[in-house]
Design a protein around this nucleic acid. Sequence first.
DNA 1: TGGTAATCGAGACGGTACGTCCTGTCTTACT
DNA 2: AGTAAGACAGGACGTACCGTCTCGATTACCA
Lengths: 204, 204, 204, 204
Amino acid sequence: MSAEPQLRGAKVVAAILEAAAEEISDKGYGGLSIEAVAERAGVNKTTVYRRWPTKAELALEALAQEGDSLFADPATGSLEEDLRVVARRLTRRLRTRRGRALYTVVLENDAGDFKPARSRGDAHAIIERGIARGELPADTDAYFFSAVFFGPVIQQALFASTVPVEAFLTKLVTFALAGARAMAKAQGARGASHIDGPTQKRKP
Amino acid sequence: MSAEPQLRGAKVVAAILEAAAEEISDKGYGGLSIEAVAERAGVNKTTVYRRWPTKAELALEALAQEGDSLFADPATGSLEEDLRVVARRLTRRLRTRRGRALYTVVLENDAGDFKPARSRGDAHAIIERGIARGELPADTDAYFFSAVFFGPVIQQALFASTVPVEAFLTKLVTFALAGARAMAKAQGARGASHIDGPTQKRKP
Amino acid sequence: MSAEPQLRGAKVVAAILEAAAEEISDKGYGGLSIEAVAERAGVNKTTVYRRWPTKAELALEALAQEGDSLFADPATGSLEEDLRVVARRLTRRLRTRRGRALYTVVLENDAGDFKPARSRGDAHAIIERGIARGELPADTDAYFFSAVFFGPVIQQALFASTVPVEAFLTKLVTFALAGARAMAKAQGARGASHIDGPTQKRKP
Amino acid sequence: MSAEPQLRGAKVVAAILEAAAEEISDKGYGGLSIEAVAERAGVNKTTVYRRWPTKAELALEALAQEGDSLFADPATGSLEEDLRVVARRLTRRLRTRRGRALYTVVLENDAGDFKPARSRGDAHAIIERGIARGELPADTDAYFFSAVFFGPVIQQALFASTVPVEAFLTKLVTFALAGARAMAKAQGARGASHIDGPTQKRKP
DNA sequence: TGGTAATCGAGACGGTACGTCCTGTCTTACT
DNA sequence: AGTAAGACAGGACGTACCGTCTCGATTACCA
């Protein structure tokens, strides 16, 4: 009767990941020390090293613990509003040390095949609902649209001195939709996007 | 008695900045240590600390040494081509440890009033030449357009697993121009952008 | 499914002791680690701890595996030669990490009731044969003589910068025999020695 | 005006050596940890490592701080009594963790050219005074005699289960003197000893 | 022959110390 | 005055063993 194997282990893992997340929130990824995580988790340093050989791996797993709410369906009924809501969430999160941490990890290592990319994948649902509702042309490339819409948002939030305010969002939404529609008219279907998500295949 | 005569003033500064730039190229901003810089510059640790209290300040100054060529006028005669050229340069640089370093600094500190924002300002010239040539509507907001065009480029280069290939650039250029034109048609002038350059105030 | 079948009982013990002996030969007692022994023996760490709670105990048992040949009867027919032979063996062994290990164990713990003392007991046979042959006075105290003869040998081998060479041995043999004879003459029997063997009591 | 250079340094050194000596007294050489020494000295770990790369080097220097009193002239007027006094001092010290430490260091490393050997050199004065007084033959080899007399003492003190008691000392003194005299008579001068002190030359 | 008990492997864990690297501050002396 | 030289306290690194523990697998012996 296999009860719970690794019961102790699971607790330890949870404690460590939580501690790591908190440390990141407090001091950012740059200020993250495994010693501090271990102590905060009430765990020995070697226990952390056993599972996460690298600060980066630990941080990534800690940051992956949640964050799924970001692209949750806003269900406003309108694509424009949906995009605005998600962009606001994104912006708010990226003003957080914790929100930025993910990007710092990616930047300091070279890894690209990552949470940021992956979670942006979650945005496709929103876009595809917009397509279904006819707010975007039928042949719109969701990956491309996502890159083009969220790219500037993230960029502004992470690296610009001034916060992208509401007005920017409004303008961006208008711009993106206009671009997508105009492009569709101008060139018709143009094959698959060339920004690929991690692994998945595109359908015709 | 000392073999090497002491470096003085400007020479010291130059040696240190150069050493720092090389260290960053080798090990990235994360792997940058003042000790290593000092040794590489043939200079004492104290001398470095005297002028740059912070690793970030040193890195920023070292990285500012060059990089102005990025937005130099491609002078292809066409806005589309100009944008493509600059985007290619940007992408190539951002695949470099040194290119990424700048963004890492900004991310790890919270400072946003920085090179990235400033240098994007340099892109305005290109865009405004496009406006002058009639390739973009007369009321196009250069700041906004810059953010909307380069945002996705930077985003892809820094954080995406897949390199933004030519096809992406082509699509992006098309998209951006289409968006700008459509927006102009649809709504006319709509007030100033809300993405501000470094310090200057925008007028209504 | 496991490739190697488990070792059991006596086999485990043998494997561990052998592994321990080899480790000591390689790295000395100071460099002896139970982990390394376990791995070398192809045995789990716990299995070692189960039987030898202490590094010292393990080492002692491992070192006790052999070493009985040291005081084996040289049977040269002459006490002087017998002593020389045994002293040479001793010296040679004490130049070995393994040979020294035993003394290190004794020194690091405070335990004195140990192999060194015990094995010196084996030397008595040689001495007593010498007494029987008339090479030493009849009332010679074998324990005392052993201490007085082998003491300097061990001392030189373990702690002196210069190896005790043949000439030293020759001189020592002469000296010891001369001392024993002179002492006998000078004072006659003088009661029991006060260096006791491990446990046994000396009789008057 | 060179005041005291290295004033701070000298204090630190003294503090560390004292702390090390105390640690050794408390826990023996085996239990000596650089961390503990550093803390006890109120000094940073790296400061210790800077000067003593090895535990052994630190221990040796710490143990060399004193210990010169051991072979100080007992000045009893009689060689026999002098030897007894020094032997008693030696024995007493070798029952100490600190006293044993020196020998442990030598044993664990292979270094032989050492304090123990060197300080035994100090014993020569005593022996040579005995020669001068006519208590030993004129051609007695002080090195050899020293080895032959103190060897058993050290041996018993370090490795025997039973303490070498007074009676042993008495017997040993008698034995050694008898041996030296008998040897002189039997063989006359026989050239230099073959146990050499560290470096010095023997005089004819 | 099948079941139970002893033995063992596997490996997580808290803990101590290792020896190294870098930080940022300080003192001293040189030039 | 600016610099080299370098000692220093401090903190974290990543590693090695320690000795303890739990969990299953294996083996051996006994019923």
